[in-house]
């Protein structure tokens, strides 16, 4: 039986009177790669923020890596890349190496220090994201795509078991985006990192993620991409034509519903 990395049970989130998530339940097994998709305002970011404890749910329970969220302390086991690059100050005077090192500090005891082992981990993360050559550059001197890689390196430097990324490819050109997805796939397959990735790019994520979670305040669909394309619920939700367009981009499924 597979180990459960994340269990979300009947989670409801309200912003004042406005219900943003309604009775969300799903589980993620260790080593899964989940693409979270849905329209603007569907609650994708709120869902990951609730998982991370940044937003408190009105109802429901979340279990992370075998521990109830309220008792969960080992946040360094989770890597997180927030939605916008603008969540950090772009003029911050830190070098790439310094920024990546920030990802190692959460689990440390006071007074925190970067050890020799940490230096090795930083080098590995820089190498994996192919940014070793810019490690002494200031983060403010980099392009959007390079900054994104640095932030991913920061998210993975602590060797997380669960990696949560919120629209990580928005600043990337198509070529860099493909390379970025390949890196994530490598992390997922070789390092067995469980990945939750929010994106609008359903076609591309269909190529990489093992499962899709389609959200629109509640879960519309949760399962494999082929099933997504064959799902009558999705046909009803999107309409046949839109579903076909999404699935056609993927080039994969041969079983798109045709009535």
């Amino acid at each position: 039986m597979s180990v459960i990395s994340l269990a979300v049970d009947r989670v409801t989130v309200k912003y004042q009177a406005n219900e943003v998530l309604s009775g969300i339940s799903f589980t993620v097994s260790a080593g899964d790669y989940i693409g979270i998709v849905g329209p603007n305002g569907s609650g994708k970011t709120t869902l990951v923020k609730t998982i991370l404890g940044l937003v408190s749910p009105e109802q429901g329970e979340i279990n992370i890596l075998g521990t109830r969220q309220s008792q969960f302390k080992n946040w360094q086991r989770i890597g997180y890349l927030p939605q916008k690059l603008t969540s950090f100050n772009p003029h911050f005077p830190a070098t790439v190496r310094e920024v990546v090192s920030f990802g190692l500090l959460a689990g440390k005891k006071f007074p925190k220090k970067i050890s020799r082992t940490d230096e090795v981990a930083i080098d590995k993360a820089l190498a994996l994201l192919e940014i070793r050559n810019i490690k002494h550059k200031l983060i403010s001197e980099l392009s959007g795509g390079q900054q994104q890689r640095v932030m991913v390196a920061r998210a993975i430097v602590g060797d997380p078991e669960l990696l949560i990324l919120d629209e990580p490819t928005t600043a990337l050109d198509p070529e860099t985006r493909e390379r970025f997805y390949a890196i994530l796939k490598e992390l997922n397959e070789k390092r067995k990192v469980t990945i939750l990735l929010i994106t609008h790019d359903i076609g591309t994520i269909g190529k990489y993620a093992a499962k899709m979670l389609y959200l629109d305040k509640k879960i519309i669909f949760y399962g494999g991409f082929d099933d997504f394309c064959a799902s009558p619920d999705i046909t009803e939700y999107f309409g046949e034509y839109a579903q076909h367009l999404i699935c056609h981009r993927h080039d994969g499924p041969k079983n798109v519903n045709k009535k």
């Binding site: 946040w75 969540s87 920024v99």
Partner: peptide, 15 residues
């Protein structure tokens, strides 16, 4: 330093 750089990330990391 970490909170100055990115408060949301720092909070998500349990700081």
């Amino acid at each position: 330093v970490v909170v100055t750089f990115d408060e949301e990330c720092a909070q998500a990391e349990g700081i």
